[in-house]
Design a protein around this nucleic acid. Structure first.
Lengths: 216, 216
DNA sequence: GCATTGTGTACTGTATACAATATTGATATC
DNA sequence: GATATCAATATTGTATACAGTACACAATGC
């Protein structure tokens, strides 16, 4: 799903900065002065400012007015809060899916589920998380509810940050991924209630047990 | 609930621009060139740009890259989509409210409900809508779920736009407002299921029947 | 008359310069 | 030694200037 043509410097900086935060290269609590970023990216402060402001709307950066911006720190409480909202929203998505949109999206969903499994097999966690995000976003898109899609896409950045902070052990992550295809077969059989229940477990299962502490 | 100290020009422009859009002074589809806004507000293009970009994140403005920005147009489909999401989110809020947080927020909720009724009595629709928003946001805040609160606050701008576009007839609006206190008494009695059901009716009841057409 | 191309204008995107404020560290005071 | 005060510095907030692109409209060819 191409989000933007990415021709403007603002967009490019936005994408790269987001990647640096989600990859852990920029850690929670770190100061990010505009000028040093401008030097790093070889652009002026203007596109940097725009990217920072956009990312702050997504909760990945916290701006202290007239002072400085830091990479947001995710707390255990916040993780729980997000999980609850996420379950609710994705359950709404499931409720909204009809046969036609399921048929239209089933191929995409299977591919993401398979790619997740494959990446897990070769121990590539970054790809696992990426494909997992894509799976859930595709599920949400199947709802065809534009407002829902919007909110979930915007929440996705925070969820990615969360997934990384969670640092789930291999066996749990693997189990968790196997639920993707289970959810799909439940959907195919039209058993939405079971699917929603499984989704709940999929998302909230021991969510915060493994949250890694954020250091400043 | 103070959102921001509002000392920066960007914030001020943001607030005023938002008001102009929600008051209908700036109509859906209208072009909003940075320079003319800059002149109007007596500031440079920089704070204007930042305000426009922020409002575009909230869906109130649509930016056509390298071309121009317009005031977003709300469609009937979008209105329905938002309503569904809104019901879901506010129902989650109701589920999350416990006795303590209800006790803490009941005064605020009653005040907003009462102010709504009063404003309705004197035919001040702008205040009705404003207080209605505050009522629902206070309800959501009672959940103490920061992620939920965030999303609902961000969705609020779009909901306000929607309420205005709806242009509900007086009797319906009046009936709709009376449900506020009903919801509160259900909450007080701990009957969350009934409260959620009423909320559903409150929000989706004939939602799009009166949507006013947007002109370019 | 209609499509196509070219040109001018208007607007956005970005860089830079300046102003205003917060932070830091040193100094003074208790 | 701890706290308060102040100056120097670093960083943000805003204005302005310039470059590049999209759009409108006229000119040209069919």
């Amino acid at each position: 799903m191409p989000k933007c043509i990415q021709n403007s410097l603002s967009d490019q900086v936005y994408t790269m900065l987001k990647e640096q935060i989600l990859s852990g290269q920029l850690k929670g609590g770190m100061k990010i002065p505009e000028e040093s970023l401008a030097e790093q990216f070889g652009v002026s402060r203007t596109p940097i400012r725009e990217a920072i402001r956009r990312l702050s709307e997504y909760g990945l950066i916290t701006i202290k007015p007239r002072s400085h911006a830091i990479v947001s720190i995710i707390t255990e409480q916040e993780a729980n809060d997000i999980a609850k909202v996420r379950v609710t929203l994705e359950q709404l998505a499931i409720d909204s899916i009809d046969d036609a949109s399921y048929a239209e999206n089933v191929k995409e969903l299977s591919r993401y589920a398979a790619d997740c499994q494959y990446a897990m097999g070769i121990g590539d966690r970054a790809t696992v998380f990426e494909q997992d995000s894509l799976f859930h976003l595709a599920l949400v898109r199947s709802s065809r509810n534009s407002a829902l899609i919007n909110i979930c896409e915007r929440l996705d950045a925070k969820i990615q940050q969360l997934r990384i902070a969670q640092n789930l052990p291999e066996d749990e992550l693997s189990y968790y991924l196997s639920q993707h295809s289970q959810m799909m077969s439940l959907l195919r059989n039209g058993d939405k209630e079971a699917c929603k229940q499984l989704l709940y477990e999929h998302i909230t299962h021991d969510l915060t047990r493994h949250i890694a502490g954020n250091r400043t």
